[in-house]
């Protein structure tokens, strides 16, 4: 039986449709290589935005800039939450997590010796308050906090239908389940915005359908904004409200799935010149 969650997964204070994330003219270079050559985009609260583009277009680089792993040389990334505008290019990654940005990785980066439960609880880190002395005693407050967050994490486990593996060590799980756990760990952060780097890569159709359903659940039931990198165009066109196309570090398309589909520059980037007669999507 599906029952409503007691906790919200959404850590944003904005109303749907308000501007949440503004990326302005971000330029990122590694030595002589330009990864991002002035990318701008706007993400509104509670939408699903897909970033697509050929390999090496700079999609993951852009996500890394947003989550603070890369520092762009130029440009601004402004994030709105709790009545404040945070300049993400100035914050270290752990602070960015604290203000409400969660993400998953292209190559699963779970804590592989921990159980599923522990991975999800690790996602709750920023919300928990136990210090080392309380931890050593594990009495009263520390224990109550652990139990309270266990309840919260169990709701995510129910949502993602991973009850049967909650005590399994993550390293022993199949690829598809690990991807699901990684989504769970990001959700455990109660994010205001969720950055998903190829959440469906390497999955079969059924697993992709499940994952798409979870992403839609999180977005529709909880209103969490989702930024998604994905190569499966079927999925992208079906679930996203808004698609941004990158190629060689530049934005070549931005709009609804239909607009992007008809954009000649996008078709050119994907299929080369004179490809007008092919139907891409």
């Amino acid at each position: 039986m599906v029952h409503a969650m007691q906790h919200s997964l959404n850590g944003s204070t904005l109303k749907p449709g308000e501007v949440q994330l503004e990326v302005q003219d971000v330029k990122l270079r590694f030595g002589g290589v330009t990864a991002l050559a002035g990318v701008s985009l706007t993400v509104k609260q509670s939408e699903i935005i897909a970033i697509i583009g050929p390999n090496g277009a700079g999609k993951t680089s852009l996500l890394n800039c947003i989550s603070g792993l890369y520092r762009p040389q130029e440009g601004r990334i402004t994030f709105h939450n709790r009545g404040e505008a945070y300049e993400l290019t100035q914050l270290p990654p752990h602070q960015i997590a604290k203000v409400g940005v969660a993400r998953s990785f292209q190559n699963i980066e779970l804590f592989k010796h921990m159980t599923v439960l522990e991975n999800l609880l690790a996602g709750c880190h920023v919300h928990m308050k136990t210090n080392i002395f309380q931890a050593a005693l594990y009495w009263g407050k520390a224990q109550r906090e652990e139990i309270a967050y266990r309840k919260f994490v169990e709701e995510i486990i129910d949502l993602l239908e991973i009850e049967s593996i909650r005590k399994k060590t993550v390293g022993t799980l199949s690829y598809g389940l690990q991807k699901r756990v990684e989504l769970g760990r990001a959700l455990a952060m109660q994010p205001a915005i969720l950055l998903l780097d190829e959440p469906m890569a390497g999955m079969n159709t059924e697993e992709k359908e499940d994952m798409a359903r979870f992403i839609l659940d999180v977005n529709e039931e909880h209103g969490v904004t989702i930024v998604l990198i994905e190569h499966d165009m079927g999925v992208v066109m079906d679930i996203s409200d808004h698609v941004v196309v990158l190629d060689f570090g530049r934005k070549i398309g931005d709009g609804t799935p239909d607009e992007v589909r008809k954009n000649p520059r996008v078709i050119e980037a994907y299929l080369g010149e004179e490809a007008g007669s092919f139907s891409l999507f």
């Binding site: 989550s67 792993l69 752990h94 960015i96 997590a97 604290k98 804590f111 592989k112 920023v126």
Partner: peptide, 13 residues
């Protein structure tokens, strides 16, 4: 120990 970059992105200083 397991994944320091992911740890940082999870908000662990």
């Amino acid at each position: 120990r397991d994944q320091d970059i992911a740890a940082e992105v999870m908000g662990i200083n």
